[in-house]
Structure formats: C-alpha cells, structure tokens
Nucleic acid binder design. Structure first.
Length: 612
RNA sequence: CGGGGCGUGGCUCAGCCUGGUAGAGCGCUCGGUUCGGGACCGAGAGGUCGGAGGUUCGAAUCCUCUCGCCCCGACCA
C-alpha cells in the first residue's frame, strides 16, 4: 500500500480534547476521529487493527465450537419489557420512537392532549443482547439434543454513558464481541464457563498484552461467579489486587479483606455517652488529635470507629436502612455492604435525611441507639472494646463502644476495602499487590435469569420442560485495541504489538523522486507482500527524512525499512525495530529473510510478555 | 445530576478585559532551493469567530438565552 494514497492526516500537536495516551496517539496518528461525545470514526489504519483483533477472537472461539451470528442494533421495547429490563436499565439505554409511535403522539396532540413522548418510546439501541439471543434460542431450540450451544456476534453497541471519556476506552458507541451459551444444567454451564475463560486467556495472550483474569463482583444476580479480564495499564479505571504468593487476583470491589486482630485497648469499660466534646471535628484524622479527656491526649486512629448509613432497595421494591461500622482508618467497600444485605440498589442516605434521622450533623452520627437500622460491623472490629463513635448528637462522641455488647443484633462481616500489603485471605501467606487495569472482557454465569423471565426452555430426555442455564461472555473489541496502545507506546508514538499492527512493515523511502531509490523501495514492497507481510510504503514526495521518521514512529508499525540514496550507494537498506530501536543493515534482496527473522524474534518476545 | 473550563480556517492557539478592516504557527496548493530525525524562501487557497436574540453608528469582543465539547465530583457519617 502506498502511503501517498492512504487516508491519513498525522498531527504534530495533541488535539485539545484528548486526555489519555491511547486517544492522543490514535488521534495524532490519524486513526480515529471524534464525531460526537464518545462516538468515533475508525479510519483505515485503526480499522485494520480492529479487524485483526476480531479475527483473533473469531479463530479462538471457533476452536470451542462457537457459532457466529449477527443481531440487530435497533431493538424493540417489547423484548426488554419481557425481561423486565426496560424498567430497570436506566438512562444508559437510548430509547426512541419509530414513525408509527410518533404519529400516535401527533394524533394525541391534535386532540389537545399533552402526551409524554417518553411513554411512546418503542425501540432502543442495543447495549447488550441477552433478550434478543434468548428470543432466538427459544424459538429455534426445543431439545436437549441441540444443547449445549454457544452463539456470538461482533457488533456495534450503544450505551448512553453518563460521562463518556478516555476516547475508545469509554465511548458510547463501541464494538463488542458478545457470546451467549445455553445448557441443560449447571455442570454443563460451568464447563463452558471455564472453556471461555481459557479461550479468553488464549485471545489476550495472542494479542501480546499484559493482562490478568480477575475475580469480580457478580452483582445482584447472585449465586453465580464471574471473572473480568483486565489489561494492566496505569491509566486503568479499575483497581486490582493480586496476591504475590498465590493466584488470587480480584477486583478491589470484591477482594476479601483479612480480619485484623482487635487492638489492645485495655479492659472493657462502660459505654461513656457523649464523653468527648469535639465541636466541629468531622474528619477521622482530626478526631484522633481532638479526643482528649483526663486520661487521654488524643486517640489512636485504630481505636476510633466510623459509621455510614445506607438505604438499600430490594428487588421487590421494599427498602431498608443499613448502618455500617468500620475502624477509623479503614475504607468502606459499599459493594460488600450491598451484597451482604442482598439489595438490588443501595445508596448512601442523602446527608440532610441522615442528619434528620440521627439528629446529629455529619461527623457525629453513630450506630448506638438507632431504631430500625440493620447494623453491620466490619469483622476487624469483632472483639474490639473501648472504641469511640459518633453520639448522634452534634459535637459529641461516645467512648467505650464494644460493638458486640452495645450494638445488639449487629452482624460482623467483611465490609472494608482490602488494601495493598494486606495478607492474602486465600493462601494466608502472600500479600496483595495493587495494579490498575482496563476491563476488556468478562465471563459471566447468568444462570436462569433470562431463561425463566423469557421462557426459554427445552425438553429433556424424560420429555420434561426445563429452563436453559445460560452464560454470557463479552470482549470490548475497540476498548481492547485502545488498551493495547495504552500499554505499548513511548514518547515518539505507538508501538503496535505485531498481531494487531495495522501494517507490519513500514517502508520509508527517503528519495521518492529518484527512480532508482523508489524502484528499490517498490521492489522490496512487492517482495515482502509476496511473502505475506503487510506493508505500508511511504512514497510521499517533498518531505524531509526527519518528517518521515517522525510519522513512522508515531504510527508505530513493528518494523521500519529505510530505503535511501545514501544507503543504496553501499547497496544496503536498514531495518529498524520500533520497540528496541535496533537497526540491521541488509541488502534489499535479503529483506524477506531479515523481516521474517525479525518477525519471529518479536513474536517470541510477545509470548513471554503475556499474562499468567 | 452538581461544580468548573472551553467553543475563532483541517490542527494548536492569540485577539475579548478597554467594541472600530479577523491574526500567527503547523497543515494544504503552486514555484524554487534543500534532503538520513518534524528544512528554507516566495506566492496562494481556506474562517457564518458554536447558534439565536439584544445593546450600539458599529459586536469575535458587552448583555441574555441556548447548543456543543472537555475536566472534576457524585463513599469518610
């Protein structure tokens, strides 16, 4: 491919609204262009990378017998109403009406009514496709003989994110591979889960990025388990903790925190109500210094406690107040609170309501004496005595709190956010190490959620009707490509992993006006393409060598082959590795052999760079 | 949703406070000199100053409204 004919415009300066590396570099390299917030065009180079990654995904899924199909992006409201998600999905589901519904709205208006157009929305853009696939399967699969079945598509999704950002990493429109499997029983679904888990490991290993499968929160669906696949990158939005001794790796939302021994705070004494007067002292660290009495000049932070009031909403619409008590220096993990009570939704009680409920200003609320609140206490406080806590009276704290004694009916459980260096709860030996990750894939056991709500059933060997057990498995295609860039770049530009590089070899012709030089460059291009390599030939005239090198570095193909009059005087061209910057001088006729050798070397290095 | 910022040729930005002929650099076109890490000279093309309304003799500039985009936050009780 001749670069002079390629649709590309590289930018010397970083576009103002690009804030993460992958977005900056891909925009500067002329690979993507923003069309609206969170919506991008993929220009030819980016699209080559995307398609290459799609092919890797297809090849690996084919090994597990998955079948590819394609569902529509525009989905009817009825299916979503049937699963119940039309109501629950919220504003991320972009809804609208077709002409028929619009006509009805217009008719109502003509009659003088004032219809709310939202009531007439009858379509949405698909953010995920459980409903559609379940509908397909229930209409086409009746017998256990047809199961198990795993169906997938690679398709454009739309999620109307509250706040799109980070270019391709959190767009509103994006390409996703979503697979759904259907089974006669749990055991079979579990086998498929691990088959997909292993397929994902193969996929991301082939890509050549550092990644980790990570245990994750499965949310309110319950009972099931799930892994996320994260590409490790400092700019990742997710925090991951990984044991340095065993395999336990999890999203910090999920990571089990070890129960720490209760501190030695002396013999337990009575709860001394309103003991400390600490006017205006709200922060935990400030309390430590401000809690003074005849015997104490300040308080160890591990002897203070903190309190959070949540309102939990359950699937049946009922609500309940939940209070969580933690040691002063610990951080709460709201996901653990939510899962412990089994809530569908949980929000921190709005401050004004909480103040009215407890009768104290922020900073002075506490768990003692609250009515109709389920009290949860972090297990690191089991057995603790002589703690301080808010008095539910502004400017005062109690002293001498013993949760087990003073909070009758409370439950001790794991509530806190695990932290780096905590002892691993799985092996008990290692310690957690912290990473940042970009979530690029997820495997999820769905169970019966959709098959029961949408009556997706099969007849078993006894002729009895059963709901199918389902699993779903996603990979963010465009996000993964961006994540690969996020992990592979330097100050000069992108360093594409070979398997998804838009082109593998960049021939830079320094003297395109010279028939001799451009002739050699074109011959090498032909030779390499003949040998199966993907080549971009920078044949642009009138550019200085420096400008061409800068562009080549920015585009970041793995190998650059420089063809210039200076080298050809000695009969040589130069092959340069983008990552190592090593240069090999060779005769033009040796290009295929040298490029093949370099390819083998690069692929070898990839294999050792992958995740575990 | 709350808070903040920004909208001026394709890109990065100046001009706005203090109203008076729309600018620079990069990119693009043409001509010439260059040519191994973003060369130089000359000549050009290209802009409803996000949009609407208002104030004014006169608005990119002042006022009002609006749209778009970006950032931060939405857990320390």
């Amino acid at each position: 491919m001749k670069q002079s004919k390629l649709l590309i415009q590289t930018l010397r300066e970083t576009p103002r609204d690009a804030d993460v590396v992958s977005q900056q570099l891909m925009m500067r390299a002329g690979m993507i262009q923003k069309v609206a917030a969170g919506i991008y065009s993929y220009l030819p180079l980016a699209y080559r990378s995307i398609r290459k990654f799609e092919e890797i995904v297809r090849e690996e899924l084919a090994k597990d017998g998955c079948q590819e199909l394609l569902m529509p992006a525009v989905l009817p409201a009825e299916l979503w109403q049937e699963s119940g998600r039309w109501k629950f999905y919220g504003d991320e589901l972009l809804r609208f009406c077709d002409r028929k519904a619009k006509a009805e709205v217009a008719e109502r208006r003509a009659k003088g009514e004032k219809p709310d157009e939202r009531e007439f929305y009858n379509f949405c853009l698909g953010p995920t496709h459980e409903e559609v696939i379940t509908d397909i399967v229930r209409r086409n699969v009746r017998s256990y003989k047809q199961l198990p079945m795993n169906l997938f598509q690679i398709q454009t999704k739309f999620r109307d994110e509250r706040r799109p950002r980070f270019g391709l990493m959190r767009g509103r429109e994006f390409t996703m591979k979503d697979a759904y499997s259907f089974h006669v029983d749990d055991a079979c679904a579990d086998r498929e889960y691990w088959a997909m888990f292993n397929a994902y490991k193969r996929i991301f290993s082939r890509l050549g990025v550092k990644f980790r499968p990570v245990e994750a929160d499965s949310g309110a669906i319950g009972g099931s388990f799930t892994h996320e696949f994260h590409v490790l990158a400092g700019s990742g939005e997710d925090a991951i903790l990984s044991c340095d001794a065993c395999d336990y790796t999890s999203n910090i939302e999920k990571t089990e925190a070890p129960a720490l021994p209760a501190g030695d705070h002396g013999a337990a004494f009575e709860l001394k109500r309103d003991h400390f007067c600490t006017p205006g002292i709200v922060g935990q660290v400030e309390q430590v210094a401000a809690m003074k009495d005849a015997e104490h000049d300040g308080m160890p932070i591990a002897q203070t406690s903190k309190f959070f009031l949540y309102r939990a909403t359950f699937a049946d619409g009922t609500t309940k107040l939940v209070g969580a008590v933690l040691r002063g220096d610990h951080e709460i993990n709201p996901v653990k609170v939510k899962n412990h009570v089994g809530a569908a939704e949980m929000e921190l009680m709005p401050l004004d309501e909480a103040e009215a409920f407890t009768g104290a200003k922020t900073g002075f609320m506490g768990p003692v004496g609250l009515k109709d609140v389920a009290i949860l206490v972090d297990r690191s406080l089991e057995g603790a005595v002589n703690l301080t806590c808010g008095a539910n009276r502004s400017d005062y704290h109690h002293f001498g709190l013993s949760p087990a004694r003073d909070l009758p009916g409370c439950t001790f459980t794991d509530l806190r956010m695990a932290a780096e260096h905590d002892t691993c709860t799985r092996c008990g030996k290692g310690h957690y190490q912290a990473f940042r990750g970009i979530e690029v894939g997820q495997v999820f056991k769905l169970g019966l959620k959709y098959s029961t709500s949408m009556s997706c059933t099969f007849l078993d060997e006894q002729g009895k009707e059963n709901p199918m057990v389902m699993g779903c498995y996603g990979i963010g295609i465009t996000r993964t490509v961006a994540a690969a860039v996020e992990q592979n770049y330097d100050t000069d530009g992108i360093i594409w992993p070979w398997p998804i590089a838009p082109y593998q070899v960049h021939i830079v012709c320094l003297d395109p006006a010279s028939p001799e030089v451009s002739g050699v460059a074109s011959q090498v291009e032909k030779d390499l393409e003949g040998a199966g390599f993907e080549v971009l030939h920078d044949d642009r005239e009138g550019l200085s060598p420096g400008a061409k090198f800068k562009d080549a570095d920015l585009l970041g193909f793995p190998l650059r082959l420089t063809v210039g009059a200076k080298g050809l005087k000695d009969g040589i061209v130069e092959l340069r590795d983008r990552r190592t910057k090593e240069v090999v001088k060779l005769k033009p006729e040796a290009a295929v052999a040298e490029v093949s050798a370099a390819r083998d070397r690069i692929m070898q290095a990839l294999e050792t760079a992958g995740g575990r």
